[in-house]
């Protein structure tokens, strides 16, 4: 934590960056995003097990972008997000500084190449627990799975917290807001909820970096991560593609390759 605060203080004092996006203490012992703009504020930064939010979501917000060059306290998921945003031409190389906590230390990563090297060295596979949960879900029969999701989606409020918390849902006009034609019904009834959640999951297929923020954001506790993780594992087995690993990569779902497998299309 001291290394982080020291680094942040130094960056702000030297005006290397105009803002450090990090974590501070929030309500009830939780962590919340903070935007430090003066060296003295650096003392409020924290980094511990409560720091879960993927702060890369703020890289896409105009209110944050206008503050100037940012240093971002980046969890492994946030680093993958930066690379994925880079692959989608949303952030430019050298335009931000990632601060990756490594033990008690802090590793500044100024370029996409540095982030790629850092990310490549880590293990991003699903954890054993995640794998087991996904396995259970995969083992359900088609009918059981349908009932499971119907029950889950019946609680969806269409509050779009999942979308707002997702750093890769940055469209200025989301498909649910396109009304000519009205692709997705606006109300949060069964059909609207099903179409909304399936649409969002499909838009994140091959792009989602498994940060888990959509599920954490969902006020009614819908396990959206199951959809994302299933799609991640399918995209990886069908296309041997993995999002968030490289700053230049083709999106598996929107890039045609002559040798793409077609046997899953029925």
């Amino acid at each position: 934590m001291n290394a982080l605060r020291e680094k942040a203080r130094e960056l702000l004092a030297a005006k290397t960056v105009q803002v450090v996006i990090g974590y501070g203490r929030g309500s009830g012992g939780s962590a919340r995003a903070v935007f430090m703009r003066a060296p003295a504020q650096a003392a409020e930064l924290i980094f511990d097990a409560t720091c879960l939010q993927n702060l890369a979501v703020y890289l896409m917000k105009p209110e944050v972008r206008k503050l100037g060059k940012a240093a971002l306290v980046a969890t492994p998921a946030a680093l993958r997000t930066i690379l994925q945003l880079a692959a989608e031409n949303q952030v430019a190389d050298n335009s931000l500084l990632a601060l990756a906590p490594v033990g008690e230390d802090i590793m500044p990563l100024a370029t996409f190449a540095a982030i790629e090297a850092h990310v490549a060295a880590a293990d991003h596979d699903l954890s054993a627990a995640e794998g087991a949960e996904l396995g259970k879900f995969a083992a359900m029969g088609l009918e059981e799975r349908r009932r499971f999701w119907e029950e889950q989606f019946s609680r969806c409020l269409k509050c779009y917290a999942c979308r707002a918390a997702c750093p890769l849902c940055y469209c200025t006009r989301c498909t649910v807001e396109c009304n000519q034609p009205q692709w997705i019904p606006v109300p949060a009834h069964d059909l609207g909820n099903l179409e909304w959640n399936v649409m969002r999951a499909m838009h994140l297929a091959g792009r989602c970096v498994n940060c888990g923020d959509c599920s954490r954001a969902c006020p009614v506790g819908i396990p959206l991560y199951l959809l994302n993780q299933k799609l991640i594992s399918d995209v990886s087995s069908v296309f041997q593609a993995r999002s968030g690993m490289a700053a230049r990569s083709d999106n598996a779902m929107s890039t045609f390759k002559p040798n793409d497998p077609e046997d899953f299309i029925r």
């Binding site: 919340r32 995003a33 903070v34 935007f35 979501v57 703020y58 917000k61 209110e63 944050v64 409020l157 269409k158 509050c159 779009y160 917290a161 979308r163 707002a164 918390a165 954001a217 006020p219």
Partner: peptide
Amino acid sequence: WEEQSRRCVGCGACAYV
């Protein structure tokens, strides 16, 4: 207002609950 709301991501959760 900018200082107060910078981390707000603009969802509907607060209003819907």
